[in-house]
Write a protein that binds this DNA or RNA. Structure first.
Length: 431
RNA sequence: GUGCCUGUAGCUCAAUGGUUAGAGCGCCUGACUGUGGAUCAGGAGGCUGUGGGUUCGAAACCCAUCAGGCACCCCA
């Protein structure tokens, strides 16, 4: 017999977990569609060459294989490259700007850890073909609304811009190559502190003076407007950084006009994010109750999507990590915890009355009530027990007395109360 | 991919290298012939993750492997 075991880093999602996961994906889907995003689904398998060369240096985490025809294939590691492929392939059928969301699994051969798996589900939402700061703002507004709808009590979206980080590096006298290690170092600020970052900067060849300059810039505190003003003053020789600051101001203006509370976002000069393809705004949503990492992240990447199409397609988007959201919500005890998909359990009094039970169940289902029926007989006690174990709220009894009177006994298994109701009005009683 | 820690019943965990590996919870049956949870009585459930090795003797020690956790790396 084959091993009764999961592949490392790949999980089964049993019903209790799945019900919460579905709540999460339903909520995300609802908010996406409220903003007019359209659904897209693509295969998990792509040509390997389509996925290669987009992830930066470390591509060993891509799952690759050959099919029976000798084609070099790979499992997608996110939904962004498939998006780029689709935009190029169906150019004539897509009206830009295109808002699309995509929900499904992706694969990375990384070392698994809590909140991080080799098979993971993401809900991606992107706006393709607009460079307007309103597009950036819309993504942030949507993410805010989604996290609020999921029940996160306090979360903040940290906002930064690639060209502010670039400007910090340039003003400190570093070239683009050295800038990479600067990104990585300052991204760790909240984890390793100012001293840790300084150490890391020095180790990667940044001189002491530049390191201090970087640390000072990165530690600017205050309101979003104050931070931007301060950055502008200190980076004013750098044209790209100045443009980036103007861009963030426009995005924030958009957020205000869209009604996003100011407490939901914050300029964070320390935020870097590793993915090399970001070109503009970058962001991460965090909550103080989960200090281990971000709930989600995203940003603007104006060059990636156009690579397949051979033209520039400015795009801004984000990825909700379903597995991470699920782990955090579980940890923080957020969201509803349904114990069953059914709300009613119709007992079977006796083989002679099975027809009555089945008819009652059919009536309930026709009325839209999720209903479970007893299959294997047994005493009422056993059946009540099964209903209780399954987490169903109402157990219904239709025995000889009820049949003759046209009634049904409804017992609420939560509090043990029970009442007799007219059979044709039962469905309305079960809410 | 590197380093460290862990793996015993469905779950949480016991068991100085020494009889037949235990407990709590859960599960099944019954006390209860039209009613779940409580109580009581009984029952099932294990190749101690897997494969080797050391030993008179291994759940324990060693090696490998698989899986999980933590840190690094990276990220969702």
């Amino acid at each position: 017999m084959a091993k009764v075991q999961n592949i490392k880093g790949m999980r089964d999602h049993l019903p209790p977990a799945m019900m919460l996961r579905q709540y999460i994906t339903r909520t995300i889907t609802q908010v996406c569609e409220r903003y007019g995003f359209e659904p897209l689904q693509t295969p998990v398998v792509e040509y390997a060459e389509a996925l290669e060369g987009k992830l930066g240096d470390d591509e060993s985490l891509i799952y690759r294989f050959e099919d029976h025809g000798g084609r070099r294939l790979a499992l997608r590691y996110d939904q962004t490259v498939p998006l780029a492929r689709v935009v190029a392939q169906y150019a004539g059928q897509i009206t830009l700007p295109w808002r699309r969301y995509a929900l499904g699994p992706s694969y990375r051969g990384e070392r698994p850890a809590r909140g991080r798996y080799r098979e993971f589900y993401q809900a991606d939402a992107d706006i393709v073909g607009s460079s307007s700061p309103l597009a950036d703002a819309e993504i942030v507004a949507m993410l805010s609304e989604t996290l609020a709808a999921l029940g996160f009590p306090d979360f903040v979206t940290l906002l930064n811009h690639r060209q502010i980080i670039g400007g910090i590096a340039r003003v400190s006298g570093l070239d683009e190559v050295a800038a990479g290690s600067v990104y990585r170092a300052i991204d760790k600020f909240d984890k390793i502190g100012a001293d840790g970052v300084r150490e890391e900067l020095l180790r990667s060849g940044v001189n002491a003076e530049a390191a201090e300059h970087i640390l000072a810039l990165v530690q600017i505190e205050g309101s979003s407007a104050e931070i931007l003003a301060e950055l502008e003053a200190r980076l004013d020789h750098d044209a790209r950084a100045t443009a980036a600051i103007a861009n963030l101001r426009a995005i924030i203006h958009g957020l205000e006009q869209m009604g996003v509370p100011a407490s939901r976002y914050k300029i964070a000069p320390r935020l870097a994010r590793g993915l090399s393809y970001y070109t503009g705004m970058v962001f991460e949503a965090i909550t103080p109750h989960w200090p281990e990492g971000s709930l989600l992240g995203g940003g603007r990447y104006d060059e990636l999507v156009g690579q397949f199409a051979g033209r520039s397609l400015p795009t801004v988007g984000l990825a909700f990590g379903i597995d991470r959201l699920h782990d955090v919500m579980e940890e923080l005890n957020l969201g509803p915890r349904p114990t069953s998909t059914a709300v009613a359990y119709v007992t079977c009094f006796s083989p002679e009355l099975a027809a009555e039970s089945l008819a009652l169940a059919a009536e309930l289902r026709a009325a839209g009530v999720n209903t479970l029926i007893n299959l294997d007989g047994g005493g009422l006690g056993k059946q009540f027990k099964e209903a209780d174990r399954k987490g169903v709220r109402y157990a219904l009894v239709i025995g000889p007395d009820e049949v003759t009177r046209g009634e049904v006994v409804v017992k609420d298994l939560r509090d043990g109360t029970q009442r007799t109701v007219e059979r044709n009005g039962v469905a309305a009683q079960l809410s």
